[in-house]
Amino acid sequence: MMEHFVLPNSGHVRDAESNKLGMWLFLFTELLLFGGLFIVYLVYRALNPDAFLLASFELSIPMGTINTVVLLTSSMTIAMSITALQKGKKELALYLMMATVAAALIFMVIKFFEWNAKIHHGLFPGMETYSSLPAGESLFFFLYFFMTGLHALHVIIGAIFIAVVIAKVGSDKVTGERISLLENSGLYWHLVDVIWIYLFPLFYLIH
């Protein structure tokens, strides 16, 4: 039998542009996933403006600010790692990616202490203090835990994603010419950052 005819536009050929478009479309779904929560936040804050203000005083602005800067830094390092790999500096790229994962860890540790403090005060949904909170404030804390929790889950997924790419760059499966996996992990990571950019003022900076 002859080799079968292969179309120039075959779906079985690696296509970096398809991967990138696919990743962007996936990011849109992530945005709208959080979007639903932002709508809940918007409505409940409009209905309970004072309660949201009072409740937000429980959150620590310094901690939130530090975490914002941590995530921004990690966004820069992952973006730089792409530049490094494209310029053929594999080792530098690896260090920059590891720095990104390290930043993710720092973010999670700070988040852990913040959550821990709230849980200590019994502010987690279902706990005693939480149940006796005045109307509206409990909604604030529910949304706080739900939204930052979902965001933290994305931080973890993003860090694992980047860790996988680190291994692939190490074994030269991802290179300057075949970089789309690294680019996609970067896009995902930036999305995690963008969502935090909104979460930060909405929860920490109500004044």
Binding site: T29, E30, L31, L32, L33, F34, G35, G36, L37, V40, Y44, L47, N48, A51, P125, G126, A135, G136, S138, L139, F142, F146
Partner: peptide
């Protein structure tokens, strides 16, 4: 995705019993 997150809220409601859509707590 919007229905996805909405359904997750129903699950959270059933697990934690928060009253997310309850007028009594705003």
């Amino acid at each position: 995705p919007v229905i996805g997150i909405t359904l997750l809220m129903i699950v959270a409601e059933r697990v934690f019993g928060v009253g997310l859509f309850d007028p009594a707590i705003g």
